[in-house]
Amino acid sequence: MSLVRVHNFSISLDGFGAGEPQSLETPFGHAGQRLHGWMMATRFWDPTTGGAGVDDVFAERHSIGIGAEIMGANKFGPPGWQDDADWRGWWGPNPPFHTPTYVLTHRPRPSLEMEGGTTFHFLDASPAEALAVATEAAGDLDVRLGGGATTIREFLTAGLVDHLHLVQVPIVLGRGTRLWDGLEALEDTYDVEAVSSPSGVVHLTLTRRAATSA
């Protein structure tokens, strides 16, 4: 059975996955790239100059066994991208997903077939509805939930996430899009592991516990 997995999702100490305001020039708002410096220093990100330590081991898991991806509208583009008929995502002609990729938006458009096996499909759907479509496309492989924070929070609230890998970066943003709101006592249904890295980040892995019969 396919799992729903989140990998390499960076948050600040105060739980924000992006700053504000987000725009074409500043995709992560006032956070800039400070949330992702750890990843940019890995071999996963740059095979030529990147390191092969703890951060790289976690980062590499992002691409293993994935048959489809789901992402929120704000990951696909800046605010207002729906008004630009030519917008094709941040990643150029060959996006890094290489699977069917489902973008959640209230304004669907025709699918976009890109190079490298990525096809963007645009859905106006609930988390459960989107997951049903992505799971069918993934076949025997897993579904990766790509973010942003609002989308991950909605799937967690619906009880649909099996594996959640967060990277806590030692910065305080103070404002932006926060992951944890409304997720009180999440630890009651997940086993939580923490691994500190020499880079200063902490890798948090939440694995949903198997349901037990009464």
Rank of each mutant, 00 (worst) to 15 (best):
L3H: 05
V6C: 07
V6A: 03
N8R: 10
F16E: 05
F16K: 05
F16Q: 04
A18K: 09
E25D: 15
E25M: 13
Q33Y: 09
R34G: 00
G37Q: 14
G37H: 13
M40L: 05
A41N: 14
T42I: 06
D46H: 08
T48N: 08
H62L: 10
H62C: 04
G65S: 11
A73D: 10
F76M: 01
W81Y: 08
Q82K: 07
Q82D: 11
W87M: 04
W91L: 07
W91Q: 10
P93G: 05
P95V: 12
P96E: 05
T101M: 04
V103S: 02
V103E: 02
R109T: 08
S111H: 11
E113K: 13
M114A: 06
M114V: 07
G116T: 10
F120P: 08
F122M: 08
A132Q: 12
A132D: 13
T135Q: 11
T135F: 00
E136S: 13
D140V: 09
D140N: 07
L141V: 00
V143S: 02
G148S: 15
L156R: 07
V161L: 04
D162H: 13
H163K: 05
L166V: 04
Q168I: 14
Q168V: 15
I171L: 15
D181L: 12
D181P: 01
L183C: 06
T189E: 08
T205K: 05
T207L: 13
R208G: 07
A214I: 13
